[in-house]
């Protein structure tokens, strides 16, 4: 089973690109299946379902969706195997720019929308810097110049990535991504994350609602950058 993790900020075009790539994969005899992870709500399963391929939605609810994906990689792969798939495409919720839910033996795809401006590639962090493929979308909406600047900025942030210029509306780029997926080796048994998740597990993560430091435990960072451990 191959594993492709498709991450990127909400609305960046993940589902659109994924659907075009899945169609190309099917055309060449692959059997893709899709798991969409989101927080509260998504209709992506309905859209993807139109392709007639197996699709499953997993909602993380009160848990960080990226952490949720990471915990559930093996379950997802297991599910895909039951669907008789040979490629699992995992679309993330893409909210947290500090997490990068990419295991080492997967194809890490970061989908990024060029209309968000030329500084965005420098802002998205490990999601982009640890990706194998960076798919730029919505190129049809910006000038050639902006596209070129954006591309250079992506390469500044991640010099080793492959860039695929895609258009979620016309399907451009889908066959390029499918070709890269075809050449991918299967996922391994014991995979490691490429990048460490955010500092510790904080009290906010476990449900503390009160604001300000005195209510929180764990490794805490102050405004001035000072870090301390508070707790037992």
């Amino acid at each position: 089973m191959k594993l492709v993790v498709i991450a990127g900020t909400p609305g960046s075009g993940k589902t659109s690109v994924l659907m075009h790539a899945a169609r190309c994969l099917e055309g060449s005899g692959s059997r893709p299946a899709v798991v969409k992870v989101d927080c509260l709500w998504t209709e992506d399963d309905k859209r993807i379902g139109r392709l007639g391929i197996p699709v499953h939605v997993a909602l993380s609810r009160d848990m960080c969706p990226d952490h949720f994906s990471i915990y559930n990689v093996d379950e997802m792969l297991e599910w895909a195997k039951k669907q008789d798939a040979d490629v699992l495409l995992n679309e993330t919720a893409g909210l947290c720019l500090r997490c990068a839910p990419y295991p080492d033996h997967c194809l890490a795809v970061c989908v990024i929308d060029v209309t968000t401006g030329p500084n965005t590639p420098l802002k998205v962090g490990p999601l982009l810097t640890t990706a194998d493929v960076v798919v730029t979308t919505k190129c049809d909406l910006v000038s050639q110049a902006e596209r070129e600047v954006f591309r250079e900025r992506v390469l500044e942030a991640n010099p080793h990535c492959r860039i695929v210029e895609a258009n979620g509306l016309t399907g451009k780029g889908g066959s390029d991504l499918a070709e890269i997926i075809r050449a991918l080796p299967p996922a391994a048994e014991n995979m490691m994350l490429r990048h460490n998740p955010p500092l510790a597990v904080c009290t906010l993560c476990s449900g503390e609602l009160r604001v300000s430091k005195r209510y929180h435990r764990g490794v805490l960072r102050h405004m001035d950058g000072f870090m301390e451990y508070s707790g037992e």
């Binding site: 209309t115 401006g117 030329p118 049809d140 909406l141 910006v142 000038s143 050639q144 902006e146 596209r147 070129e148 600047v149 591309r151 492959r162 860039i163 695929v164 210029e165 390029d176």
Partner: peptide, 21 residues
């Protein structure tokens, strides 16, 4: 074909805008 930096093509269309502030 795969490297937009080496592709000898530029495009101009009606719905393109400058978005950088």
């Amino acid at each position: 074909r795969a490297d937009p930096r080496r592709k000898p093509v530029a495009q101009l269309s009606q719905n393109m805008h400058f978005l950088a502030d």
